[in-house]
Amino acid sequence: MQDLLQQVFNGLVVGSVYILMAVGLTIIFGVMKIVNFAHGEFYMVGAYVAFYLVSLAGLNFFVALILASVLVGLFGILIERLINRFGKDMAELEYTYFTILLTIAISLVLANTVNVLAGPSQHQIATGISTAPIQIGPVVVSEFKLLVIVIAFSLSMIFGLFLKYSKFGKAMRATFENREAAASVGINTNIINMVTFAIGAAMASIGGILVGAMFNIFPFMGSQASLKAFAVVILGGLGSFIGAVVGGLALGIIESIASGYFAVGYKEAISFVLIILVLVFRPEGLAGRISR
């Protein structure tokens, strides 16, 4: 029982990072129908920017976190402009091909460029926050891990409320539902695209920074994170915000509990087996509606 509680807690921490990754991925898909294979690279670049801001510029961890995520958000807008510039008049099939291949290309370029410039070695981002174990009842936690959970949940809650109640959030949801109809009632879908990409990229980079502070960063950290985020959005339903949150938590906890019973290496395979199972039995995702 004690083990189980500990594993659930560990799952919550990992799941928090999955949520940060998956929310961006799912809204980018929802709004623009792009499967963003470069999403893990937003996460990686964010982590590297924050690492250098802390270690070279000597900034406070939180300042670096905010600055890095703003920079990566702006970078996300740049990518969105690139896709929009060349892809906007394409037929559906061409567009799917174009966006997937282009984002794969971007991810190759980013990961390998960082690999050459920063070197393949691993780093950890210094935070100044205690990672010492604290015993709470039967569970061992740390200040920083609690912080990770708080950051992930408050950010997704703020974003969820923003989507539900703000005028801009409503415009975003309208664009999810029907882009042409949204444009015809005067919603500027270009701005929606850019904001979606910026928020998605910024949230992914925050995920990367938190992971970089808990564990470590390396140039190819993004590809695995991307794959996990795909698993989460399929679990939750592509394009579903709630699905990304529920799916992220579910995957984190399932993986964590399963790692208590299976060999460590198999833990990584779980998410992919889950994707296939979900696609067989519930292709619309656990929380989702069909948005195919």
Binding site: T96, I100, I234, A269, F272, R292
Partner: peptide, 20 residues
């Protein structure tokens, strides 16, 4: 049964499951 993005991601999942 799946198309587009779903096909892409599930085929990737298959690949990764076999890889692991």
């Amino acid at each position: 049964r799946l198309r587009g993005a779903y096909f892409v991601i599930s085929s990737l999942a298959f690949q990764m499951a076999l890889f692991y």
